[in-house]
Computed example of a mutant assay.
Amino acid sequence: MELKVAKTDLQSKKGETKISIDEVLKQYKEEGKHIFYFDGQNPHKDMQKAQNTIQKAGYRVQLNEVRYGLDENNYIYEIHIV
């Protein structure tokens, strides 16, 4: 499963960057990166599947919606691996 990574700024016009759950776990293990941000366009079910997949790999995971504006659609997903 691949998920869209969140943009780093609102004016960014780069193509969509995608990352797999295996790559997320690899970055966690090798680089020590433990917080990942994903685009709000990812289906919530896919985000929950990602959370469950990481939990089955033996890690504790927290999935949050991070709001960055007043509009209901201005949010990104945050996965925090502990």
Rank of each mutant, 00 (worst) to 15 (best):
A50P: 08
N42S: 14
G40A: 13
Q11S: 15
H80D: 14
I76S: 05
I35T: 14
Q48F: 02
D9W: 00
Y77D: 15
I76A: 03
E30G: 01
R67M: 10
T8N: 01
S20C: 04
Q48T: 03
K18F: 11
K18V: 10
I76V: 07
Q11C: 06
Y28D: 05
V61F: 02
I81H: 02
V24F: 03
Q51N: 15
Q27D: 10
E23D: 04
I19Q: 09
R67F: 09
L63T: 06
E72D: 12
H44P: 08
H34P: 06
S20G: 06
Q51H: 11
G58E: 14
L10V: 02
I19H: 07
I76N: 07
Y37H: 01
R60S: 11
E31H: 01
V5E: 11
S20M: 01
G69Y: 01
D39G: 03
E72I: 05
K18P: 07
L3Q: 02
N73G: 15
D39R: 00
G32Y: 02
Y37F: 02
E78N: 05
Y37L: 02
R60P: 05
N73H: 11
E65H: 05
K45R: 13
I76W: 00
V82K: 13
E31V: 00
G15V: 03
E23L: 01
R67Q: 14
I76K: 04
L63W: 04
E30V: 01
L70V: 07
I19K: 06
E23P: 01
Y37K: 00
E72S: 09
K56E: 09
K14M: 10
E16N: 08
K45Q: 14
D39L: 04
R60N: 12
H80L: 15
N73D: 13
G69L: 03
E72Q: 08
K14P: 05
D22S: 12
D39E: 09
D71R: 12
N42G: 12
H44Y: 13
N64F: 14
L25F: 03
N73S: 11
N64S: 13
H34L: 07
E16F: 04
T8V: 00
Y77T: 10
M1G: 15
E2S: 14
E16C: 04
I79W: 04
D71A: 13
K13T: 11
N74F: 10
N42M: 12
K18Q: 15
Q55G: 08
N42K: 15
F36A: 14
I54Y: 07
Y68G: 01
N42C: 13
Q27C: 07
E2H: 13
Q41A: 12
Y37I: 00
V66Q: 11
T53I: 06
E2A: 08
H34G: 12
Q11I: 07
Y28K: 04
Q27E: 13
